[in-house]
């Protein structure tokens, strides 16, 4: 890590996604000035003019990798950074664009959107490749999932990092936060909530608004998918619907885990 004697240099980078994780940083109105003054933010296209950087102590990287150009840039960021944080569900797990990637859905979607006579190599802005999370290509030092990230799950990691302290993981499913909010369990009322297999950090917002968890924080590390599928079946959700719900925001990790369970 780095010494806390100098202000750490931070870079914020964005690949394919909605830019919501970068925007969530900009939406930390109360902390915005501190965010920009406690560290030296040298690269943040959304909020400031372009700068060339040789090295950053902390790289916050949003989005999935969807083109060959992005892949080269990611490798360059990894080489030039000390600590790389995957920011948001797209960077951590591939995001919604990963959906059904195991079934080679990418090629078909490309044709559907750009037409069957348009070739991937025709584009001059980087050839499209099936969307992948960052960890499929480079070492990721910390993951902060979220769609988008929340202040309360980024800040404990970020404040430690800028002081040169290695952060801890956030190892809990949505259910833990839901209990802390004092909510009645929706599953007990027959509502298909997938909170038990989804990473916490959002504050269990959907159940707190009487709505089932859609899974946008991505898979909880120790998720028990088998038990989740059984529970969904028990309350009358057919298997196809259950799998679709679990994959919606689950990205690469959900598809891998579900493959094991189904086998």
């Amino acid at each position: 890590m780095w010494t806390s004697e100098h202000k750490p240099i931070v870079g914020v980078f964005g690949f394919s996604g909605c830019a919501g994780d970068q925007l969530r940083l900009v939406h930390m109105e109360d902390e915005l000035v501190t965010l920009f003054t406690t560290a030296e933010i040298k690269f943040f296209h959304m909020a400031q003019s372009h700068q060339e950087v040789d090295h950053v102590d902390i790289a916050l990287v949003e989005g999935s990798i969807n083109t060959k150009k992005q892949l080269e840039e990611l490798k360059e960021i990894r080489e030039k950074s000390t600590f790389l944080v995957a920011l948001g569900t797209c960077a951590c797990f591939g995001g919604i664009q990963y959906l059904n990637e195991k079934d080679k859905a990418f090629e078909e979607r490309f044709k559907h959107v750009y037409g069957s006579n348009v070739k991937k190599e025709d584009f001059t802005v980087g050839e499209a490749i099936p969307p992948q999370p960052l960890c499929n290509f480079v070492k990721v030092d910390a993951m902060v999932p979220g769609c988008p990230i929340e202040k309360d799950n980024l800040m404990p990691i970020y404040t430690k990092l800028i002081k040169g302290i290695k952060p801890q993981k956030y190892p809990a499913p949505v259910c833990v936060e839901c209990k802390l909010e004092g909510n009645d369990c929706l599953l007990l009322h027959g509502i298909p909530c997938i909170g038990p297999v989804v990473s916490a950090g959002c504050g269990a917002i959907c159940p707190s608004h009487n709505l089932p968890c859609v899974g946008c924080w991505g898979p909880y590390e120790a998720a028990n998918y088998k038990s989740m599928l059984n529970k969904l079946e028990e309350i009358g959700v057919d298997k196809e619907t259950a799998l679709r719900k679990l994959k919606l925001f689950g990205g690469s990790k959900a598809e891998e885990e579900l493959e094991k369970v189904i086998k």
Partner: peptide, 20 residues
Amino acid sequence: DIFEGPRMIEALVKGKTFQE
């Protein structure tokens, strides 16, 4: 130039429920 990689949302929502 638009470098943002294609996500093709219009195609991936096919077959999903209207709420999804």
